[in-house]
């Protein structure tokens, strides 16, 4: 007869059994810390919603590698272009994800990368234009398996 699985067995299997690395939950960034990080970028200048588009799957099966593309509506000419795109999150241990600098030679204001998400949360992308204005987009992402689990 099979011995009934205990709840502990079950949790261990769910968690993927013994790893050589102990993963502890670091204190997560807070929405407040994210606001501070954004303030550092904008120096208090107003941020308008619009122009920026975050493209990320709304439901993520593995938080270790989440494909994300940020694009900005801009002609990318010498007169009118994006100089910087910054990506922030509110619940990873640190609010900054990545900062990308570009200019009229980029042709398009678009960057794609892969990021880690510790848990379901909101992402914010902010673009700075050459006229000094800031624009933003926000999206919610649901993560079903968090980043950095290990089971081998």
């Amino acid at each position: 007869m099979p011995s009934p699985a205990t709840r502990r067995d079950v949790l261990i299997l769910g968690a993927g059994a013994a790893g050589s690395i102990l993963l502890t939950r670091p204190s997560a960034a807070t929405p407040e810390q994210m606001r501070e990080a954004i303030l550092e970028l904008t120096n208090g200048a107003p941020i308008r919603p619009g122009k920026v588009h975050i493209d990320v799957p709304p439901l993520v099966e593995n938080g270790n590698s989440v494909p994300i593309t940020v694009s900005v509506d801009s002609p990318m000419t010498a007169d009118a272009h994006v100089t910087l795109i910054a990506l922030f999150n509110e619940k990873n241990p640190q609010p900054n994800v990545g900062t990308f600098r570009m200019g009229p030679r980029s042709g398009k204001a678009r960057v794609a990368t892969r990021i880690r998400l510790a848990t379901s949360q909101q992402l914010t992308a902010i673009a700075r234009l050459n006229d000094g204005s800031f624009w933003s987009d926000k999206v919610d992402v649901i993560v079903t398996i968090a980043a950095c689990t290990e089971d081998s």
């Binding site: 009934p4 709840r7 079950v10 949790l11 968690a15 241990p93 950095c148 689990t149």
Partner: peptide, 27 residues
């Protein structure tokens, strides 16, 4: 970046699975 212990419903899902395949006395 995150705790290794996944949410408890994962364990629950597995408990259901174990029950589903382990009920019969098995050779």
């Amino acid at each position: 970046m995150e705790a290794a212990v996944r949410p408890a419903w994962i364990g629950l899902a597995l408990a259901v699975l174990v029950a589903a395949v382990a009920v019969q006395p098995s050779p």
